[in-house]
């Protein structure tokens, strides 16, 4: 019997423990497929974050390391400089990357470190139970902003692609989403571009992916997708924020 659909070899057989409707599983699958399509699985080292996707070290079928919260870009740098022939990616959430790890991501980008960052932006702290994230939208409720994010008290969200595009360093910056089939396909394209640039030794690539968190948003999976489409994308516009390959043409 011919198998038409199955788990890509870039993912392990371990069952992923994400909530129903969570976007992590979709992004994991895209990465798992790309490790095979680009024929890089056997020379890839992945970095798992701290947060819901801490277990990514069990899910990706390649060498993995799990560093302290937010330090993925620094650990990636250490690995990449030690083994330049390896492909290195750091998978990070918004608390990991845009709060505690702000210094590490900014400086890895400024150094144009030849690594790939996969940044999951779901505007909330997932694993710890729905607290305010640096990406939580103004007015959006969280367990530490129960009245909604008050910009007078909690300030404004951090727009990572816009922030990093102020630097000369990064080679590729893009924001995508996984709320619709079309956006999922675009996410795959962006991630493929990012990995390809690393393979070509172009330098730093980051793909920010707007992703659903129905549990902590207090929504159904369908409502979550709609919320990305109707609300989140307006605050975090999709598209390429930097593509040096196009600029060089």
């Amino acid at each position: 019997m011919k198998q038409l659909f199955g788990r890509p070899a870039g993912l392990t057989d371990i069952s992923q423990r994400y909530c129903p409707g969570c976007g992590h599983g979709i992004v994991h699958r895209i990465i798992g497929e790309l490790l095979v399509k680009l024929n890089i699985r056997e020379r890839t080292i992945g970095i798992a974050p701290v947060g819901c996707s801490v277990f990514a070290d069990e899910y990706f079928n390649c060498d993995m390391i799990q560093p302290p919260h937010g330090r993925g870009p620094a650990v990636s740098t250490g690995i990449k400089r030690s083994r330049p022939d390896c492909i290195v990616f750091s998978y990070q959430g918004d608390g990991d990357l845009a709060a505690i790890g702000t210094a590490e991501i900014v400086h890895a980008a400024a150094r144009n470190e030849n690594i790939t960052i996969i940044f999951i932006n779901n505007a909330i702290f997932g694993m710890t139970g729905g607290q305010l994230a640096p990406t939580t939208l103004p007015g959006m409720k969280s367990t530490t902003s129960v009245q909604g994010r008050d910009i007078k008290k909690q300030g404004y969200p951090i727009k990572v692609c816009e922030l990093l595009s102020g630097l000369d360093g990064p080679y590729y910056l893009a924001r995508t989403a996984v709320d619709t089939p079309k956006n999922i396909i675009n996410t795959e394209k962006a991630l493929k571009t990012a990995f390809t640039y690393q393979i070509e030794e172009k330098g730093f690539s980051l793909v920010e992916i707007l992703s659903m968190c129905p549990t902590n948003w207090g929504m159904t999976p369908v409502q979550s997708k709609k919320w990305i489409e109707n609300t989140m994308v307006k605050y975090y516009p999709l598209g390429e924020y930097r593509n040096r390959a196009k600029e060089e043409k």
């Binding site: 620094a74 250490g78 590490e104």
Partner: peptide, 26 residues
């Protein structure tokens, strides 16, 4: 060899973590 002046001591020790996990003396 590799010399990196880091953004902080936090980054430095984590770069070591990466390099040493990759099997190198760091």
């Amino acid at each position: 060899g590799v010399f990196i002046q880091t953004e902080s001591e936090i980054a430095a020790i984590n770069m070591l973590f990466g390099a040493a996990a990759a099997g190198k003396r760091a």
